[in-house]
Design a protein around this nucleic acid. Structure first.
Lengths: 203, 203
DNA sequence: TTACGGTTTAACCATCTGGTTAATAAATAT
DNA sequence: ATATTTATTAACCAGATGGTTAAACCGTAA
């Protein structure tokens, strides 16, 4: 379809592979479908990426390096916990609304093959929780926020922001809403989630 | 392996199918693997369940009817919102720790084929949010809890309770913990999540 | 123009996989 | 005991799928 000229073929393949892998996962994806979507011959996939596994890993690493910086923003900058919760919630939900398949893709494939994490750890900018945990402990000590474990707070934040997108068909089904209703709810959550968290932890 | 005698063959198949489907999903599961795990001939799978699709649906409906009652407890009984949050959080996390593959299985397969929900709606005891939303509105009005939308509160509760299990490899990886550390965290969450929610909404 | 390298394609291959079948074994009924 | 129905198996099949290959294509340097 979108057939351009020559050596960006490699990129066209990656683009098509992203779409197919992120929607269908490793097991559900078909090399032929990727080739068709890229508008090239299937042999090209192997010419540039050797195997399905390696093409998949290229897509996966790429996806993770897209998400990691979003996480690092919360974990590494110098703003207060409250500010971090607000900015992360807003930015992250905005980000995911643009890439709705990403979180589910990563979670699913990490479930399929948990030791993918080793591959990722080597990858640049792997998120570290240390600073965040220290900061939580500090603000607790200073009486800025209520007593809470940094790890648990981190899980809370991640859950509230990510889960609705991972489970969107379930949410839509249980709440009897369509794509548009879902979008509105998520739009609300950009601030509602932060307010909810802060109301709970602020002294 | 566990080879008993005669007509519970059908159940042996379902047991094996549960294990394989819930761990690997529809696309990743293999009929041969299910047969091997049940210790019977592959043709038996088709003899009792016709096709992979129908065997899968049997497993899927079964899984959902295991989870639905847990949800209905929160949605339908007459206790206060606060009590509901406490009991649901405790019961649900306990329940999932016994069936760790369930939530991810359901979410994943609902993503693969969103109109599975239609099949489920017909199924008994499909959870309805109506009562819960009314109760939230009522308690808000009575000044028992702060102003909050019932739908959003429901998403909060579900997210905080379910997400860690769906994303366990991600959580383990980011927090640098192993199975045991994870288990401890989840044990804590049986009360910590409820406290967190209540601290946020209680007036 | 020709020779050469990388690029692209159609055809092909081996294997895997869901599903079927024909024959056999085991119950059950007569 | 014998007929009949039900359960089980080994062997097989067709189509899908990841991957390979040999030949053609195409830009470019000599």
């Amino acid at each position: 379809m979108t057939k351009q000229k020559n050596q960006d073929t490699e990129e066209q393949i990656l683009d098509a592979a992203k779409k197919v892998f992120q929607k269908k996962g490793m097991d559900g994806a078909r090399m032929q479908e990727i080739a068709d979507k890229a508008g090239i011959n299937k042999a090209m996939l192997h010419y540039y990426y050797r195997s399905k596994q390696m093409l998949f890993e290229a897509v996966f690493s790429n996806a993770f390096s897209l998400l990691a910086p979003e996480l690092n923003k919360v974990l590494k900058d110098d703003s207060s916990i409250e500010e971090k919760v607000r900015s992360f919630t807003h930015n992250y939900i905005s980000f995911i609304m643009k890439h709705p398949y990403l979180p589910n893709f990563i979670i699913q494939e990490l479930n399929r093959n948990p030791n993918f994490f080793e591959t990722l750890r080597k990858n640049a900018a792997f998120p570290s929780l240390e600073k965040f945990e220290n900061q939580v402990a500090y603000e607790v000590e200073q009486g800025i926020i209520k007593h809470i474990d940094g790890k648990q707070l981190f899980i809370h934040i991640l859950s509230l922001n990510v889960f609705p997108f991972v489970a969107s068909p379930l949410i839509k089904g249980l709440l009897h809403i369509e794509d548009n209703g879902f979008k509105i709810l998520m739009e609300e959550r950009k601030t509602a989630v932060a307010e909810f968290i802060i109301a709970s932890i602020k002294k």
